[in-house]
Design a protein around this nucleic acid. Structure first.
Lengths: 204, 204
DNA sequence: GGCTAAATTCAGCGTATGTTGAAACTACGT
DNA sequence: ACGTAGTTTCAACATACGCTGAATTTAGCC
């Protein structure tokens, strides 16, 4: 009358499948409840695994967060590609890249957990500043050549971020309800103007 | 050798001063560490008050959150005023109203805690959807008269939200470093175009 | 067929949490 | 003076947390 549940231990993990499952659960939980709101016990429960195993793989709760904030493969390249599109189409390319990332489950998990955890955890914020500022802002601004390229990149990013917040994070308003092609078509011109249009208010 | 600290109980609260202090501390903590990361004990400690008193005033931890998410007086009116500005200046008026709110400590506390808590707490998200969508989107869209007014309001809001995230929440990039007048001048034209310019991609 | 190393579980530690119920203090009306 | 209502503190509860150390199972290697 001890344990009726078939507890079978030992190596049955194939190439880190279990670790990947834990990580996926953790990302979802960080995004949904934040860092403090995520417990190793609940992660273990959702991943059908003992909490100790989470720590066995990720060492720490913080280590789990660190792993959750690593961008998925292809992320950097996708941005670089969009930032290198012909100037005429670059605005639309950037917006489309971002929207595609938000609508693919794998990268959506990463984006959501990063953006939402960055709100509360200084570590996540710094990580986002790196992944975001360095990769995105640099990818965009290094492809521009005038004096205001840093400003232009920031402006373009601000519009894309705003779209993501309204459409995917808060899911509020008309932008959240329309098909993605329409959202891209509506927002791309503004981004494009930021990239190579005339800027107001730089001299005063 | 019992208690050397002068414990003085009894009514020394003047017109809810203590409750206001608790609420202010709570807002700051919600914004900094999130809902789960905020403990009644730490709130009490920072407000120089016993944790039980927090519950005496706000009944629940959730009640404390509820109170923290109530907009400060003047908030709704400020948005309505900006949304009613002459059409030519409306974009700039909206952007300036938001930036002013973020730079005034009282409303900054509210905005920050609302936006950041909305990331993790469904209750806060719904509250933000109400305060934000209903008040802002409606204030803006009810002043427009064409068929796409809901879309126009959402687009304008997305640009303003993006600016707020980059400049005040994440503090990343050129938009975070420049004086506020410059940020307004740079972003206002895009908002203005969303309000009464030509929109792309609505028919296909 | 034992050996080893990796994978997994288990029991338990110290600590912090939200909440409660009662107690203590103060100001004020009578 | 006195009681009463409103504030504030205190002690304690059950629970949940992060993390550790040892135990247990399994798969592959000689």
């Amino acid at each position: 009358m001890r344990s009726q549940k078939p507890t079978h231990r030992g190596p049955r993990d194939e190439r880190g499948v279990v670790a990947a499952r834990i990580l996926s659960v953790a990302r979802a939980s960080f995004a949904a409840y934040g860092y403090a709101g995520t417990s190793l016990r609940s992660v273990g429960r959702d991943a059908d695994v003992d909490p100790g195993l989470v720590i066995y793989y990720f060492k720490d709760k913080r280590g789990l967060l660190d792993a959750a904030l690593v961008p998925p493969p292809g992320w950097t390249e996708a941005i670089a590609t969009a930032a290198a599109a012909p100037m005429r189409l670059r605005g639309a390319a950037l917006v489309r890249t971002m929207i595609d990332a938000w609508e693919a489950p794998a990268s959506e998990e990463f984006l959501r957990s990063t953006i939402l955890t960055a709100a509360h955890e200084p570590i996540a914020r710094q990580r986002l500043a790196t992944n975001f500022a360095v990769h995105i802002l640099d990818a965009v601004s290094s492809r521009l050549d005038d004096d205001e390229r840093l400003v232009r990149a920031s402006l373009a990013a601000s519009q894309i971020v705003g779209l993501a917040m309204m459409r995917y994070v808060w899911k509020v308003g008309a932008l959240a309800a329309m098909p993605s092609d329409q959202a891209i078509a509506l927002v791309a011109p503004a981004v494009q103007r930021y990239l190579n249009g005339k800027l107001t208010g730089l001299d005063q």
